[in-house]
Design a protein around this nucleic acid. Structure first.
Lengths: 219, 219
DNA sequence: GAACTTGGACTGAACGATCAGTCAACACCG
DNA sequence: CGGTGTTGACTGATCGTTCAGTCCAAGTTC
């Protein structure tokens, strides 16, 4: 799993690779770029990872792991299930940003496209998506148990809601002029509150970056 | 727009390019592949389209146009708004397949990933997505006017529902072991019927290709 | 209507750039 | 000294693009 302290070189290169992929895309990432960013020679990169494909696949895996670790870390701090769900949505819609997550959404687009042909990447994607679904599922279970949520099949909800968030992630990552981060966040939370039966009001404290004003929450 | 009858060579090459992209992915598509498939020399491909990037971008545009043309064609045959919506969902979840649509979902993944860096592709994607949203919006408007649907903001619904369908398209395109075409279709229709307030029952006539049994999972 | 010209469609071969991966050598360290 | 880490220089393959030139159908001229 490449613990930074035990394998500093590997970790350093994986992080470099993550950044390069986010910038130039999976197919556009060159070992030279990774080497430059890590401050080493291209040959050393091959020395540690046998091939470019291997390096990139591992970088993808690590990036996903990082993302979910950050998600867990944040969720653990929040007492209510609704709050945890909101945090997940915020992360996915890039409303709250953090350096660790830089380029995560963009990486997803490459992850999906690459998963179509590369079996190793495909495995990472499947695992990652199931992880995401399970996270949602658990939050819903907790919410139902604690009396916050009601009237929903947790499994169907998890499937539908991850799809919804993936869809919003696309829009946000691509900087869609109609569906910006704020709009995506609001609509996603609106759907969740309605489906799960909890109260939620958009807080206008957040500054919007793009997207239309959400017109009147439905009656 | 490259009408087949007026510009047979261009159209032939664009179709070849579409197939090659679907097979090898956008970055993996080589002009040699396109030339071979079209039965011409690589040089001729460059002769018609100035560059590879240009060819591929136009192929993407044409593919999207084809998809929406097919969608309109089908929708026009269906009298009820609920039926039209169901048809759109069926197309997106690949429940009903047609030769014309072969590889469309896979192409979307490449479209999104490529849109991150290529401005021309980005424009295609934005236009295409707005087109999709407008289609949904119009169906909802019709449904509300005709008394089929009620209690929904058409704009918010369109934004959310296209995101949902995009998300399902990913799962289906990647052959997710948990979320297959049938499951995606059922859940998507369930969400729609609930949000729009119309009756819908899963018909078990459709044959499933993958994915778990949709009703009653995990006891 | 024969001879000649024009221009578009088309090709094979070659060029040149780009990269992933190799290798022999070297430095450092226990 | 031997092994681990590191490098610069090189190689081999891939591919987009260019180019010189062929082919042929449709004018044009006398």
């Amino acid at each position: 799993m490449s613990v930074p302290d035990e394998e500093p070189r590997r970790a350093q290169m994986l992080e470099a690779a993550r950044q390069v992929i986010a910038e130039r895309g999976f197919p556009g990432a060159r070992i030279t770029d990774v080497a430059d960013r890590a401050g080493v020679s291209p040959a050393l990169v091959i020395y540690y990872f046998k091939s470019k494909d291997n390096l990139l696949a591992e970088a993808m895996r690590q990036s996903e792991d990082l993302w979910y670790a950050e998600m867990s870390r944040r969720a653990a701090k929040i007492p209510t299930a609704a709050g945890r769900l909101e945090e997940v949505v915020a992360m996915t819609c890039h409303v709250s940003s953090e350096v660790v997550l830089e380029g995560s959404l963009e990486l997803w687009l490459d992850l999906w496209a690459q998963a179509l042909r590369d079996p190793e990447v495909r495995a990472v994607r499947e695992e990652s998506d199931e992880h995401f679904r399970e996270t949602i599922r658990q939050i819903v279970r907790d919410g139902v148990t604690g009396g916050e949520f009601s009237g929903v099949d947790e499994d169907d909800f998890a499937v539908a809601y991850t799809a919804l968030l993936d869809g919003f992630a696309i829009q946000v990552a691509l900087g869609d002029p109609v569906v910006g981060p704020e709009r995506a966040f609001d609509v996603a939370m609106q759907v969740a509150s309605q489906q799960l039966g909890f109260a939620w009001e958009p807080r206008r404290a957040r500054r919007r970056t793009s997207g239309k004003q959400p017109t009147r929450v439905r009656g």
